[in-house]
Design a protein around this nucleic acid. Structure first.
Lengths: 375, 375
DNA sequence: CCCGACTCTGACAACGTTGTCCAGGCTCTA
DNA sequence: TAGAGCCTGGACAACGTTGTCAGAGTCGGG
């Protein structure tokens, strides 16, 4: 019997699903599961040749009709159209691509499409792509550098014309041959590692600094910071913003006030509770991204005394909570749009040197950052 | 001067961006913007031929090495690997696809990737695809039937192996030739129109009925319903659930209690305000989807007396509002996963007749549905 | 009536890969 | 040592499309 996974697997990809058997997948001579009938093109779709035969014209004439090229008599065109209709012919873009060299598709590699930050970003990229007649292939790296590389290279093998990448890894030298080969590339949200390419990011440093300043302006001095893993560029930048704001205000930062790590709710909950307990608890918390913010809101909801909060990234319904959640908002759609537009300018050839574009963030005050220290 | 849109446009797609000039895009002889150098393959990437030449072996030997096929001396393999490395060769999957007949990619057409309901759904489909070595091409129909068809057909032209479609239109006969040609197809969230295909949906009727029953059980009789356009199947089913619950309880439904239309906040706001005013205002509202729910929450937040609310679709932070928002939750990820798994079973050939699968919904009570009528 | 110009059409090669098939060299056995 | 059989490697066609180019047909003017 075939196991479900290998039955359909046209690319013969080695899927790294935790290899529970332990023994290697030996390529042997020919595994039974890999056997496939020789000319098995599933549906046997009609080709231009079939259309030509049926219409009684030459192959190239069909091509001309299909592509709206001039030089075909109305009568001939009619016959061809009829044959196309009758056979249910649909041009095979794979073959077209092979011939033309461009695939009219671009790839987007992000962390997790299910994250409310990346949905709008992806949609914005798609819209720009659509305006250029290109389709979008999406891939989630799950914040895993290997998986990012695997995805990017798979996309390159498909010969996408361009790549928008939200890096998970921090070394992108593996992309050098691709860049040289002309694959347009733009990095978003975080810069690329060891490679010279276009980058579109938010002002993570400035945004975080302003958010923390806001707390300081409302009288807080013991301010906690809970963020993502420090190896992630945005997390590091936001932490730097926090430190800068504190230093500028002459507040020495205590180690227990900072907690960086995975955004797993359990870890975040523990971090928040620790900061809020002890002899000198924080009176305000700055959270490093939307997931952390949501978890901390839950913790604070169950906390006896009010604690001020400013979060990085806007979250839906933040205005309806009591108090409303003050945030440093970045514009995910604008990030995606800017990146995609730059990508297509690369493809147009109207773009020269790689550049770093920084989009501003916006402090949206809703109350939670204005709470005075409760001691 | 070229206009930005047409400069990169490999597929020569007619982009229907509101044609503000009014005059048709004539194909003339050859527009200057369409001219492209004949053999311009952007980067001139190395091919297997180049690798073969450099390694001093035959073409097929390179192919064997690249695909891990047996029958190559370690020494030869080493030479080939070296050449691959040196040239930065990457197999061209377009050509491979042409030869093999399968593209190892599937298409997902949904309404809007930026909607928090579709993000997780898309991600779930992607995970299943990944487990089968396939990539995912995403497209947003923006709830427009023409755009849905345009997208689906573009995907078919790319010869995706399968399609997961969240229908915007209600007639899918245009897909018949594709189905006949062997494109695996599964419809999700809403059934297909005039075509026999697999469908995976939530129990919209039952979910809505239970939600409304919940309100009735807490003493409400004047219950409003605000939903999406009635031509959308899910909206119609949920309305039917509402009516059934009301009839079962012997409550005659008044016309002004029901409002169906676009989910545009302005429309929804107006609808809610109307129901809440007049001599006999509703004491509870059932909202037909996440976007409507969010808008209505905002309206209720500014309303003088408490109004009960149950919404279809869960929303983030619903538990932290005052009161918590009671919802009928559907599992977007499960919808996507189920559909994708069925798709690959079609591709495996282990699937026979099309089927309709209905996933259950879950009533999550958080308080807003338990408010008693305030009169 | 012929010739050139023009229009329409089709044969052919090429895109980069993989499947088929055969050749040559090797080992092993009788 | 010859023949059988295996192992390795390579030539070639095919996948479905598009670009090139040349041929066939038409028309008008000299």
């Amino acid at each position: 019997m075939l196991d479900a996974t290998s039955s359909y697997n046209p690319m013969g990809t080695r899927i790294p699903v935790a290899d529970r058997t332990g023994h290697r997948t030996v390529p042997e001579t020919t595994r039974s599961t890999e056997r496939r009938l020789p000319g098995t093109r599933y549906g046997n779709r009609p080709t231009m040749k079939d259309v030509a035969a049926r219409a009684g014209v030459g192959l190239k004439t069909v091509s001309r009709v299909v592509n709206g090229e001039p030089g075909v008599t109305p009568e001939t065109e009619r016959r061809v159209q009829e044959a196309i209709e009758a056979l249910g012919f649909r041009r095979n873009d794979s073959a077209r691509v092979l011939r033309k060299g461009r695939t009219a598709s671009i790839g987007l590699v992000l962390e997790d499409l299910a994250d409310p930050f990346y949905g709008p970003l992806s949609r914005a990229v798609e819209e720009v792509a659509r305006a250029h007649g290109a389709l979008l292939i999406n891939g989630s790296s799950a914040e895993d550098a290997d998986r990012e590389q695997e995805l990017v290279l798979a996309l390159c093998a498909r010969r996408v014309d361009g790549l928008v990448v939200i890096p998970a890894g921090d070394d992108h030298r593996y992309l050098e041959p691709e860049l040289k080969a002309g694959v347009a590339t733009v990095f978003v949200d975080r810069p690329a590692g060891h490679i010279d390419a276009d980058v579109v990011v938010s002002d993570n440093f400035g945004g975080a600094r302003d958010g923390v300043r806001h707390l300081i302006a409302h009288g807080h001095r013991r301010i906690g910071f809970i963020g993502d893993m420090p190896r992630i560029h945005t997390a590091a930048e936001r932490l730097r913003g926090y430190r800068t704001a504190m230093e500028d205000a002459g507040i020495p930062v205590e180690d227990p006030w900072m907690s960086l790590g995975v955004t797993d709710p359990e870890r975040v909950r523990r971090a928040a509770r620790e900061m809020l307990s002890g002899p000198e608890p924080v009176t305000a918390i700055f959270t490093g991204n939307n997931r952390v913010t949501v978890t901390v809101i839950r913790v604070l909801a169950g906390h006896p005394r009010p604690v001020a909060l400013v979060g990085f990234d806007d979250i839906e319904l933040a205005d309806l909570l009591q108090p409303g959640v003050t945030v440093v908002a970045q514009d995910a759609a604008a990030l995606g749009r800017t990146a995609a537009e730059r990508l297509f300018r690369q493809l147009d050839g109207t773009l020269l040197a790689p550049e770093r574009i920084e989009l501003p963030t916006r402090l949206i005050t809703r109350g939670s950052g204005e709470l005075p220290p409760a001691d």
